[in-house]
């Protein structure tokens, strides 16, 4: 029997693991890939306090991993396939074994939301991308479109100007949602063309992306934008596949609801980071969630 199982080794899970290890809880952190999570797709993190020069998402998460391991955290490369969670009993099943734990922290994160339009699935891997740092360098001197108007879309549009000849930033409204600093930067970026009031309706091409079909939401006019790449940053979906059959409370978008102490509607089950229903999904908020969840889990274990 474990004291604590944490599922997902992004910043929230690694921080929960750090705090739990220092609390001397018998803890295991399960991760189906390798530690990292969404932040791995970020080329340069400049809003995580304590790193005034900025650093890559990979380096930040690698530091978190090493720090947690310094205090004895065990990270196991195992994929969870099923959960049985009740107030009395918490069981975690991987493809090979069953584990029981006194408390559980869900840090399964989120994944990029898709557009859900014609051509997107067919052309994923052939010009449709959800990771600018991975795929940007394939578009040297080419034209690309970025879909979205939030921080990620704007940051990645600016990042892509390092490679692409022209970046069309397509947004459904006539103003951006992104942080003001990023808005200033993108408006000053010569290679970025802002396409307002527009939503993508189809991605065209066979062997690769050739164009993006757009609809102007004010005039209903349809136009075609010739591009070789389409980068999609329209938000995130909760990674909640494992949680579907559980009696957890979710918000309308499927993120897990918790109280101020990160406890879900099942006592002894906590959620932290991007999977949690909250206002702001950032590394800085994930680590706070993770620390609180570990502390609350410790108190739960002591009380039982």
């Amino acid at each position: 029997m474990e004291d604590l199982i944490i599922i997902g080794a992004g910043p929230a899970g690694l921080t929960a693991g750090l705090y739990a290890s220092r609390a001397r809880l018998r803890t295991v952190l399960l991760e189906k890939l390798a530690p990292g999570g969404q932040i791995l797709t970020t080329d340069f993190v400049e809003n995580y306090p304590g790193f005034p020069e900025g650093l890559s998402g990979f380096e930040l998460v690698d530091r978190m991993k090493r720090q947690a391991e310094n205090f004895g955290l065990k990270i196991a490369g195992k994929e969870v396939v099923r959960l049985e969670l009740t107030p009395e009993k918490k069981r975690v099943f991987t493809d090979k074994e069953a584990m029981e734990t006194k408390a559980l922290i869900l840090t399964t994160g989120a994944s990029p939301r898709k557009l859900g339009i014609e051509g997107e699935g067919l052309l994923t891997g052939k010009g449709v991308s959800y990771c600018a740092t991975c795929d940007g360098p394939f578009y040297r001197d080419q034209e690309v479109a970025v879909i979205g108007g939030g921080d990620t879309a704007v940051e990645e549009a600016i990042f892509l100007t390092k490679f692409a000849g022209r970046v069309h930033l397509v947004h459904r409204r006539d103003e951006l949602r992104a942080t003001k600093l990023l808005q200033e930067r993108v408006k000053a970026a010569e290679k970025v063309n802002l396409v307002w009031d527009s939503v993508p309706t189809r991605i065209l091409g066979q062997a690769g992306v050739e164009a993006l079909e757009l609809k102007n939401v004010k005039t209903n006019e349809i136009s075609t934008l010739p591009v070789e790449g389409v980068f999609v940053f329209i938000g995130y979906n909760p990674s909640n596949d494992l949680l579907a059959d559980l009696s957890l409370d979710f918000d309308d978008l499927g993120f897990v609801k918790t109280d101020d102490n990160m406890e879900t509607s099942i006592p002894g089950v906590f959620a932290a980071g991007d999977i949690r229903s909250k206002l702001l999904r950032q590394v800085s908020t994930a680590v706070g969630d993770g620390a609180t969840a570990a502390f609350a889990a410790e108190r739960f274990i002591e009380g039982h």
């Binding site: 990979f58 990771c131 360098p137």
Partner: peptide, 14 residues
């Protein structure tokens, strides 16, 4: 893969 790609570093050890 490439050095610049974070998610590639997740696949590498596997």
């Amino acid at each position: 893969w490439a050095e610049w790609c974070g998610p590639c570093k997740v696949v590498g050890p596997t």
